[in-house]
């Protein structure tokens, strides 16, 4: 289904109201504002619930160890949102902590993310173009197969992909297990979801564009690179963003493929740090969590506009 950008812009950000004001059956004004008030109240309550974990996490991340795990054994403590004293040092400690090598894990995650983002965006675009703009025999069947693969749960292929990587490592000079390769290499073959998104986008581009280029003697690859890719920028940005978030989030992948602590990603490192220390230094753990969350949220705010435009033009929703 296609939609125009302003509409979805509204769907996410509500910047403008497309609801027609005219032609409404006018009912009681007072009842209307009462309705509005109850919606406000309901939303306020929900937002309080949704925002609370963030607030508590931030607050904890700035507390002293004694404030989060008191040794006095007192039965209960009152809830304290504003830390006293405020310990910014926690963040510095997380970054320099020797048990949770934050800079190294960030570097590892970024290496994987960059390689996966480039690979997935490029190859998904190529494939999506093929599915959208080249009419060839078997296209429909292949496309349906691709959509069906989205339903295969990762656990089903987890074991055999693992053995496959081991096989490649054993019989070719290309070591797989215990390297980052299993985590980014598959991305270079596109992913069904990204291909689907980009195909939807390419479908919205008029065929005359490529026809004109074709008449000018442009090759198919030339059309793709020179005409289509520049137009697809917002859609590509969405795919890149989704891929980045996928890598940043991924837990099971690194858990299965990474073997040495010096290769851990942030997600895995954080979990290992937590489980290795039984009860926990909650202030440090919350500071670490904040540091893991912030890049994703920042990225979202920075790219919000492109993001919404991209989602809108790719017609992603149902």
């Amino acid at each position: 289904m296609k939609r125009s950008p302003p509409e979805l812009d509204y769907a996410i950000r509500g910047t403008k109201s497309p609801l027609p004001q005219r032609g409404q059956v006018v009912s009681n004004r007072a009842r209307k504002s009462l309705n509005r008030l109850s919606v406000h109240l309901g939303l306020l309550l929900c937002c309080l619930g949704f925002g609370l974990p963030f607030a508590w996490m931030l607050s904890t991340s700035l507390k002293t160890l004694d404030a989060v795990s008191p040794t006095d054994g007192a039965a209960s403590h009152s809830i304290q949102f504003i830390p006293d004293p405020v310990v910014w040092q926690n963040y510095a400690n997380v970054v320099t902590n020797e048990k949770l090598d934050f800079p190294l894990y960030t570097r590892n995650t970024l290496i994987i993310a960059v390689l996966a983002v480039i690979g997935n965006t490029l190859s998904s675009a190529v494939v999506a173009y093929g599915f959208a703009k080249i009419k060839f025999k078997g296209r429909g069947v292949l496309f349906s197969i691709m959509l069906a693969t989205m339903m295969i749960p990762f656990p089903v292929v987890m074991v055999s992909i693992f053995t496959l990587f081991r096989f490649i490592g054993d019989y070719t000079p290309l070591q797989m297990l215990g390297t980052f390769r299993p985590l980014w290499l598959p991305a270079w073959f596109g992913s069904a979801f990204s291909i689907f998104l980009l195909r939807q986008f390419f479908l919205t581009l008029p065929d005359d564009l490529s026809e004109a280029a074709r008449i000018d003697g442009c090759s198919e690859l030339g059309i793709f690179v020179r005409v289509m890719l520049p137009l697809a920028r917002p859609a590509l940005a969405v795919v890149a963003l989704f891929t980045f978030m996928g890598v940043w989030n991924d837990f099971l992948g690194p858990l299965v493929y990474l073997q040495r602590p010096e290769q851990y990603t942030l997600a895995l490192g954080l979990q290992v740090f937590q489980s290795a220390h039984g009860g926990t230094q909650w202030n440090m753990l919350m500071a670490a969590s904040v540091l893991v969350i912030v890049p994703v949220i920042l990225l979202f705010f920075l790219t919000q506009r492109t993001f919404i435009q991209g989602i809108a033009t790719t017609g992603m929703k149902g």
Partner: peptide
């Protein structure tokens, strides 16, 4: 209650080290 309030192992607030 006791174990959920205990400071993690390897911190000064872990029960044996803190004396609890």
């Amino acid at each position: 209650d006791f174990s959920s309030a205990a400071g993690g192992f390897g911190t000064p607030n872990s029960p044996f080290i803190a004396g609890t």
